[in-house]
Design a protein around this nucleic acid. Structure first.
Lengths: 126, 126
DNA sequence: ATACTACCTGGAGGGGACTCCAAGTCAAGG
DNA sequence: CCTTGACTTGGAGTCCCCTCCAGGTAGTAT
């Protein structure tokens, strides 16, 4: 699979895909005889994983570290698990923040609706 | 309330508080006779709102725009509401991404646990 | 008086994550 | 053959969001 096909499939620019590979976020993608990337299943798997994690705000450093551990084989399973658990914790924390903000946004939107409906606004919430 | 007290109260550095004011994210905070910030209720309200929204990933531009509209009074209520609704939409989108990633992380963690428990791993999930 | 501390301003620096660009290579079509 | 277009590399530029710093002032403690 060429880089532009992968780019379409996962909605990442070719620049981003090359960038991810350059910084070691994705292991080196196989090339054909003229040096052009030919993504195999393994590479696609990495791309998909990284896209998913990045879109959830997981930092690039953590993902590089995960890949690094993965390359080192079974000896690092406990370490990898610890990394994942920590990322899960941070993710949950962010989601809780977002839940709070969502509720707040909802209240604010409601308040604006009331104002638009002609009702008098109470002071307090702005 | 001094800037360092506000800084402690909301866990934002004094640099960040000054920065927010500089870029117009927070309206100008009142100063005492020697030019030192003395945060009033209104300022604190803005700080709290901004902290909440920023921690949920709402961009600074949108928040500045909201403040700008707010300063312009009642005429902008509909516009403000539209802005909030759009931010809510984006927030929900991000939360859905994160939910997916959370589930994926959970599966990955489970898989690592099984490996640690000595069970044979099925190929597929990495 | 002087040292200390907390504050002020404006501007520069830094980190994360891309994004763009120049210069070059290769395969295919006219 | 020669152009076209997709690809290659390495390096530089950009954007967002702070974070740090230099140089200065104001009030307080010794």
């Amino acid at each position: 699979m060429t880089i532009s096909e992968v780019s379409k499939k996962y909605a990442l620019t070719t620049d981003t895909l090359r960038y991810y590979e350059r910084i070691g976020l994705i292991p080196r993608v196989p090339r054909n005889s003229s040096g052009i990337r030919d993504y195999d299943e393994a590479s696609l798997g990495w791309v998909e994983l990284i896209k998913c994690m990045r879109s959830a705000g997981v930092g690039i450093e953590a993902l590089i570290e995960y890949g690094r551990l993965f390359q080192q084989g079974e000896a690092t399973i406990a370490e990898r698990k610890a990394l994942l658990v920590e990322q899960r914790r941070q993710l949950l924390e962010r989601m809780e923040d977002m839940q709070r903000s969502l509720e707040r946004l909802d209240r604010k939107i409601e308040w604006h609706e009331e104002l638009l409906g002609g009702k008098a606004a109470e002071p307090g919430d702005c």
